[in-house]
């Protein structure tokens, strides 16, 4: 083996190349890989955040929907109750009104009947006298029979 100055030349070259690589080559790639690692980590982090946000938003929307349903059901319930109440009230009013109308009608009927009775009562003496005149064939003195006629009318 012929060992000569080449071995020294190679050693010096090796030292210089290592220095150059350490100073000018290695950091470039180390930085790029580091940067890419960071970017990916940030991306994954952002994705996880977005997922959390989505989850909370969907939970919130479900809650709101649930709330809306509950409140709608409440409103319907209330409306139903109110409607029933209104109908009840109307029924009651109608009944009262009907009773009132019936009472008024009854009162009118009674009044009418009374008036008819009264009229009959006032006319009964003249009818009776006319009837008696026909029977007797002569005029009956009303004044003379006034007491009897009044008694008759009162009995009607």
């Amino acid at each position: 083996m012929d060992i000569n100055l080449t071995i020294i030349g190679q050693s010096v070259a090796f030292a210089i190349f290592c220095w150059f690589c350490h100073r000018y080559v290695w950091p470039l790639f180390a930085n790029v890989l580091e940067e890419r690692k960071r970017t990916i980590a940030e991306g994954l982090e952002a994705a996880a955040q977005a997922e959390l946000k989505l989850e909370s938003a969907s939970r919130q929307s479900t809650e709101q929907l649930e709330e809306a349903k509950t409140s709608a059901a409440g409103i319907i319930d209330q409306a139903n109750r109110r409607a029933a109440q209104i109908i009840d009230e109307a029924k009651q009013q109608a009944q009262v009104e009907a009773e009132r109308v019936m009472a008024a009608a009854q009162a009118e009927i009674e009044q009418e009947a009374n008036r008819a009775k009264e009229e009959l009562r006032t006319q009964v003496s003249s009818i009776a006298i006319a009837g008696a005149e026909k029977i007797l064939g002569r005029a009956v003195d009303q004044a003379a029979n006034e007491e009897m006629l009044t008694q008759l009318a009162a009995e009607l």
Binding site: N4, L5, F17, Y24, L28, V32
Partner: peptide, 29 residues
């Protein structure tokens, strides 16, 4: 020549390849 000699061919290829490698890597980097 003994020790006081240098192998121009192998030394030259060694330097050329090492230099090419480093400069190329730096260029890409």
């Amino acid at each position: 020549m003994g020790f006081m000699a240098i192998h121009v061919d192998t030394m030259g290829w060694s330097l050329a390849l090492g230099g090419a490698f480093l400069l190329w890597f730096r260029y890409i980097g």
